[in-house]
Nucleic acid binder design. Structure first.
Lengths: 123, 123
DNA sequence: GAAGATAGTTTCCTTTATGAAACTACTTTC
DNA sequence: GAAAGTAGTTTCATAAAGGAAACTATCTTC
């Protein structure tokens, strides 16, 4: 008989694995953290503002990523009745629930630098 | 004069953005969370064990991802003097510092499901 | 009327990621 | 000696992601 997975083959583990997959799919790609992080500072930003704030992104990717985030209700898109039209993007309350994740990840990245630096000195 | 980024154009923000990029690069790809999550349960696992635990992964990807993780000192690889050779993979103490991130992400994924479910009912 | 700003979309191209299958190389079991 | 288990690597192929540049369309300013 073929061997099977044991450790991950129970309901709590499977639920957690699925949850991680879901989250990472929603936050997938090169730019989502950057966009959410920028909007999480609380200001309403227009398309061109974001293009300037998110260093290196182009119009195509910005447009696509904003659509993804809006679809998942993490940001809101409001078209203003100005001429020419302006569009305001804003993080939603639900989007703000991502902030603890972003903070953990940023914190770890800084710890990682310290760790690498310490190891270099020791060797 | 061309407009420039304002919000993200200061040192604390840039440090945070870099830290997030670093972390996400280290954890990039379809399988790293899954592998670390499995090893974070504390047991030593061999290559074939991991192949069975990480549902869907193939030998090539597993081998590559394990190399990446070892290079970043998140897991350790120990070759045992058995015949045929067996290799034990284990999470390092440093690798364990990722657990809070993984927990936050899993927690959020579960909250996300609840949020989507609530919204469906309301509409 | 040309230039520049608003907010994107579309096209074409390159790079990166992923995967299935075959293969190496050694050892034990049937 | 064939089969199956150990731990991978290599090859070939496709899928997904990302990017540069051109383009639509409207409006304001010089």
């Amino acid at each position: 008989m073929k061997k099977k997975a044991v450790i991950n083959n129970n309901l709590p583990c499977k639920t957690e694995i699925t949850a991680i997959k879901d989250t990472m799919e929603i936050l997938s790609g090169k730019w989502k953290f950057h966009i959410i992080g920028t909007l999480s500072l609380g200001k309403k930003l227009r398309f061109m503002d974001l293009l300037r704030e998110v260093d290196g992104i182009g119009t195509k990717m910005l447009s696509k990523e904003l659509q993804d985030l809006e679809m998942n209700q993490l940001i809101s898109r409001i078209v203003l009745n100005t001429k020419p039209v302006t569009v305001e993007y804003q993080i939603t309350d639900f989007g703000k629930t991502l902030i603890p994740i972003i903070d953990e990840i940023a914190k770890w990245g800084i710890e990682y630098r310290n760790f690498v630096y310490k190891n270099k000195r020791r060797v």
